[in-house]
Computed example of a mutant assay.
Amino acid sequence: MSNKLRQEVLQTFKSLHQTRKTVFKNDNRALAEGRTKINQEFKKQKHVENEAAIQELLNYARAVEHELKTCVIQAQEVAPGKYQAEITKDTIKLDNVAFKEECCMEVGNKRTQQCGPRGCT
């Protein structure tokens, strides 16, 4: 493996651990499990010498890091039945569509939707 590729592997390894610390801050169990999983996956692929295969594994690791940064959120129960979510600047925020129970009618044991996919009009 070339020196440049070795540096890229180490940088990706460090970056994944930094992301783990950010995403799972204050959650000791998730931090420990994440650390173990990252270390296991890198050790499992330690024998790979083909540069194209290594590059593919690095792309996969970057995709995992992106998924962690943008899609994983923490939520803590602040009161019975009420949760506070930790949203970061990287978290993808999608438009919410309000669900209205009155839009659905029960016919027998089946529910039928009375309005379109965007909710009631």
Rank of each mutant, 00 (worst) to 15 (best):
Q114F: 00
I73S: 12
K37E: 14
N96I: 06
K82C: 12
V64N: 01
T12V: 07
A30F: 05
P117C: 10
G116S: 06
I92A: 12
K110A: 13
E101H: 10
Q7N: 15
L58V: 04
K37W: 12
K4I: 10
I73Q: 14
N59E: 13
L94E: 09
F24E: 01
Q18D: 03
N59R: 15
L94C: 04
D95K: 06
C120P: 01
C115G: 07
E86P: 02
D90Q: 09
E101I: 11
V107I: 15
F13Q: 06
E51P: 05
I73N: 14
K69T: 01
Q113C: 08
A79S: 10
C71I: 10
Q55D: 10
V72H: 05
F13I: 05
L31E: 01
L5C: 09
R111T: 12
Q55F: 00
N50H: 02
A75L: 14
K37L: 14
V97K: 13
D95N: 12
G81M: 02
V48E: 00
F42I: 01
T19F: 01
A79E: 11
K69E: 05
R111G: 12
S2G: 10
L57A: 10
G34F: 02
N50T: 02
K110Y: 09
I54W: 01
H47K: 12
E41S: 13
N96H: 09
Q113E: 05
A53G: 02
M1K: 05
F99E: 09
Q114W: 03
Q113K: 04
E65L: 03
M1F: 07
I38A: 01
Q45M: 08
T88M: 10
K69F: 00
R111S: 14
D90T: 04
K46Q: 12
D90R: 05
C115D: 08
K25E: 03
V107C: 14
L68F: 02
K21T: 15
Q18A: 01
C120H: 04
C115W: 05
K4Q: 13
A79F: 05
L10F: 04
F42C: 00
I54D: 03
N59I: 06
Q113S: 06
T121Q: 15
E101F: 12
L16V: 00
G108D: 03
T22H: 08
N28L: 15
G81Q: 04
K69Q: 09
I73C: 15
Q45H: 07
T12W: 00
N109S: 13
Q84Y: 11
P80M: 03
G81A: 04
D27H: 08
E106G: 09
L16G: 00
N109F: 10
P117G: 11
E65N: 12
Y83E: 06
G34C: 00
Q114L: 06
V107L: 15
D27A: 07
C115K: 08
T36W: 04
L68E: 00
H17R: 15
R62S: 03
T121S: 15
E102T: 11
K89H: 05
H66E: 15
A63N: 11
